[in-house]
Design a protein around this nucleic acid. Sequence first.
DNA 1: CTGCTCTGGTAAATCGATTTACCTAAATGG
DNA 2: CCATTTAGGTAAATCGATTTACCAGAGCAG
Lengths: 336, 336
Amino acid sequence: MQRKASQADVARLAGVSVTTVNLVLNQSRSARISAATAQRVQAAAQQLGYSTDAIGRMLRTGESRSLGFVSNNVTTTRYASLMISGVLNAAEQQGYTVLIAEAESHQLQRTLASLQERRVDGLLFGFMQARQVDIPDLKQQRAVLINGVSNGLPSLLPDEYAAGVNAIECLLAHNHQRIGVIGRNHKAKDPYHSVTIESRFAGIDDAMRNAGLCLAGEVHGDEWEPSLGYQGTLTLLDSGADITALLVANDRIAFGAYRALHERGLRVADDISIISFDDEPLAGYMHPTLTTLQLPYYEMGKLAVERLLSMDSAPSHATCQRVAMPLIERESVRRL
Amino acid sequence: MQRKASQADVARLAGVSVTTVNLVLNQSRSARISAATAQRVQAAAQQLGYSTDAIGRMLRTGESRSLGFVSNNVTTTRYASLMISGVLNAAEQQGYTVLIAEAESHQLQRTLASLQERRVDGLLFGFMQARQVDIPDLKQQRAVLINGVSNGLPSLLPDEYAAGVNAIECLLAHNHQRIGVIGRNHKAKDPYHSVTIESRFAGIDDAMRNAGLCLAGEVHGDEWEPSLGYQGTLTLLDSGADITALLVANDRIAFGAYRALHERGLRVADDISIISFDDEPLAGYMHPTLTTLQLPYYEMGKLAVERLLSMDSAPSHATCQRVAMPLIERESVRRL
DNA sequence: CTGCTCTGGTAAATCGATTTACCTAAATGG
DNA sequence: CCATTTAGGTAAATCGATTTACCAGAGCAG
């Protein structure tokens, strides 16, 4: 791999000084260089296939135009990869490259050191489940948390309160008044487990209260897997609550709920409407397709980059920005 | 953000030359430095919190200890993020950092330039669907393709032939002889669409032939979505083929097949076994859970890094390494 | 003709780490 | 006691781009 051409090479070929080459190529103050010379330099650069070497520039300017994206080992595991997409696209737009690293908490210190050695201009921390985390001292590095909160760092969280309200309002708008809920849990009180779920249920409760209604039935549960949806739905049906709609805490629960309804000879949408949260790929396969409030991973990733790059320098203070969870209307909610 | 300490700072504090600091800190030839001096330097480094600046080193040594991971815009979209995990873990093991970039083909040129400016030591190209792609001239850069093939570049592909054989053998081992297949397609002949699918079906056909059997029924189809599984299964059932097992081309098709069987009052596993390919998260939720041959994204990512870093320099020539697709035995295949 | 301002460029320092080529004093050999 | 090693370090060059300070000649006013 023969060395790439440097400004020195271009200078030699064009018969000018390196300074001149630099001025022309950065055309910032090229006012000071005559058009003829500029031409010559451009031609030489072209001929040698010159492209500016980022390393040399970084060393001199101290800016790397790169961001570090750190996630705990869960993040790159399937669901949240849209977050990476959002980060990547926004970063690219502004001419930044993204260094990506996974780190469980005990390696975090080393991972951060490695990124700082590479002079990243800012750090992004991405998490799977919105919760509180402990981030070690960042030495004044700019940083933004995606889908998590921490001591003194700005962060982005899904607007779960509004999502809760919207879910209920969607059901109300379709004339449902007898609503069952599956998935409220107790861990929700623990910020190290989740900082958002509690407010989601607050939104649900407030929306019901505003409508002058009460929940027609509820099944709690910590493990948000299909089995909870299955068991919970059977429980609700057997309780004689006579519900017309079901609000469940995520798509996997909904998946289990579908099965339970089916076994009881009830049709989703036709007989009982279901609304959910997350919008996993699964939601689009189900039959009927699932109406759900999307976790805005892509959007959060994008906004995080924009926020990070617009921060002056040191993390101001822990402001937390809420990102809307769009309602993805599919087939599982139908007018009564 | 106060500047990090440099070797010069350490040298000043320890009262020695920069050279000495460097020799001590890289302890390679520190044989030439007395223990006492080394001590003093170490202490000074410690006190200043010195850590070697990667940029400076890169400039001097020409090596960045970083790899570029390029994917088309589909890759970071959910399914294949395990590939990133594999890449990240393997790279970290060898002390490499990963620069990640998404690029649709028309931006590819610019993305590559950007990575080369950052002096990546090698390139990885990741694809969603194993197919042939056109990669522009890499200027002697080392590169490996993951889940794709291209002109003259080494690559890693899932071993679909073996997977096809194994799928059939799994069914045979469970005493199934009347097997239906859904999803064979014609695009499979087009390498720009897929370079592996054809060999998967070759494996299936060979395994059947070796067993002296013929397929009991087959439904072709290019769109591998649930609807194909649904329609295809109904078609097979109505054809009177009397099958006991179904081999489908991916998990989404299986999902549709489940629904069709259910509608016809047939139970998956109890009445008809199903085996599939891919192992999406979906496969674990289904009821009964789906037996499937896993696309080894994680493994391919990991192997790609190891391959890349063990390559001398220029891409030797397009050798293609096959990576086993493990059989994930769940509940949908049962002994007849 | 002299002093001044532009015009168009350039030399040299700098960023931080590495590496090569010395250099000095003490120790060793004969 | 003189010639060499050797141990222990150091000065300086280098990587590539940027930036500051400066310079030579042309044009212009008085």
